[in-house]
Simulated scan of single mutants.
Amino acid sequence: MDKFNTLLEAAQLAATRCGSWSFATSDDRYDVKGLLVLAETSDSETPIDEDSFYVVSRAGAIGLCEDGEDIDWLFLTGSSEDEDLPATYQVDPQINFCPKCGSGVVSGARFCGKCGNRL
């Protein structure tokens, strides 16, 4: 899941993954343009706390994480119903060394650069 400091940044990524959203607590629907305008307005009028952040799911749903853990899903996609949206935000563990050969690995790498082992 991707993490952002502003709703506009989250909406910009979500727009590459989906074309329409519904607000989680109402029947309000948004297309890409409407979501981007709403996000920009929201960021300028009511910015989030410094400890809070937005997350975007693989399908383009947008959530707000105010306490660093619990996610309040704000904008849902048509495929969000099929997507298993998590209730909490968890950081993926970082692998610093290859478990097979012990070489240092590049952050976020999927394979060891030395031996090719899948990380």
Score class of each variant (00 low, 15 high):
D2L: 11
D2C: 06
T6G: 09
T6I: 06
T6E: 06
A14K: 10
A15L: 03
R17Y: 12
G19F: 13
S20F: 10
W21G: 13
S22K: 15
A24R: 14
T25W: 15
T25L: 13
D28W: 12
R29P: 02
Y30I: 03
K33H: 15
K33F: 11
G34Q: 15
L35D: 05
L35G: 00
V37G: 02
L38S: 13
A39Y: 01
T41Y: 14
S42P: 00
S44T: 12
E45P: 01
E45D: 10
I48P: 05
I48D: 02
D49A: 12
E50H: 12
D51M: 08
S57E: 08
A59G: 11
A61I: 03
G63W: 02
L64R: 11
E69R: 11
D72Y: 07
D72T: 12
W73F: 08
F75W: 13
S79Q: 14
E81A: 13
E83F: 13
T88M: 09
V91R: 11
Q94H: 04
N96W: 07
C98Y: 00
C98W: 04
P99Y: 10
K100S: 14
K100M: 08
G102Q: 08
S103C: 05
S103V: 05
G104M: 03
G104E: 06
V106R: 09
V106F: 08
V106N: 01
S107V: 06
S107N: 07
G108C: 00
R110Q: 12
F111K: 06
K114Y: 02
L119E: 06
L119Q: 03
